[in-house]
């Protein structure tokens, strides 16, 4: 393979540019589906064994325990079944708080792709900015760092197998999270 087809990442062997672009497009498309509340199509991007985790982040001293950890309270600690229940609620006509709809905006950036031991799986780092507007002047913004595991499925499509979302805020500056990050 020609050197120019490859992109270097700091501690991992190079990943082909074509694959990087494919994974970028996968994340951009996912963001667009979430913006459009196309949740059924979004669910199709997820692997059956998805673990979708948004832990609560705490301001702790450096010498102390981690700012987040497994088993501690979280906003999401979901498998596919839980995610489907959330989607089922969002789709109900009686989800009064969703009508008029929230105007969603998911911005994805700083995408970095790393190889893993499994040739069909990649660790993908990215930043997410979720901006939401409601009615006239209601605005909420959530910024977070994401670490995904993206997998090449047997049918050749990419699937999201793991997602860890590390919020910037320790106190969520929003009344709710009526979207996915």
């Amino acid at each position: 393979m020609n050197q120019s087809d490859q992109i270097a990442s700091c501690d991992n062997p190079a990943v082909p540019i074509v694959l990087l672009l494919e994974i970028q497009q996968f994340l951009y498309r996912e963001a667009r589906l979430l913006d459009g509340e196309q949740y059924d199509e979004w669910l199709e991007l997820l692997a059956d064994d998805i673990h979708y985790w948004v832990p609560g982040v705490q301001a702790r001293y450096r010498k102390d325990d981690a700012k987040f950890s497994v088993g501690r309270m979280a906003f999401f600690d979901d498998n596919l079944e839980y995610l489907k229940i959330r989607v089922a609620r969002a789709k109900q006509p009686s989800a009064w708080a969703e009508d008029p709809p929230t105007r969603h905006f998911h911005l994805v950036g700083n995408i970095e792709v790393e190889k893993t031991e499994n040739p069909a799986e990649w660790t993908v780092h990215s930043l997410i900015l979720s901006n939401r507007h409601r009615t006239e002047d209601d605005e909420m913004e959530i910024k977070a760092r994401r670490v995904d595991l993206v997998r090449r499925d047997q049918d050749g499509s990419l699937k999201l197998a793991r997602r860890k979302v590390i919020l910037q805020q320790t106190v969520l500056q929003s009344k709710n999270i009526n979207t996915f990050l």
Binding site: V54, F75, F76, I85, W96, A97, K175, N176, I177
Partner: peptide, 18 residues
Amino acid sequence: VMLTFSPAGIFEMDDGEN
């Protein structure tokens, strides 16, 4: 509780709006 009565919970997300 995360699924129901937390800010991302399917019950609580309607309360805050009200």
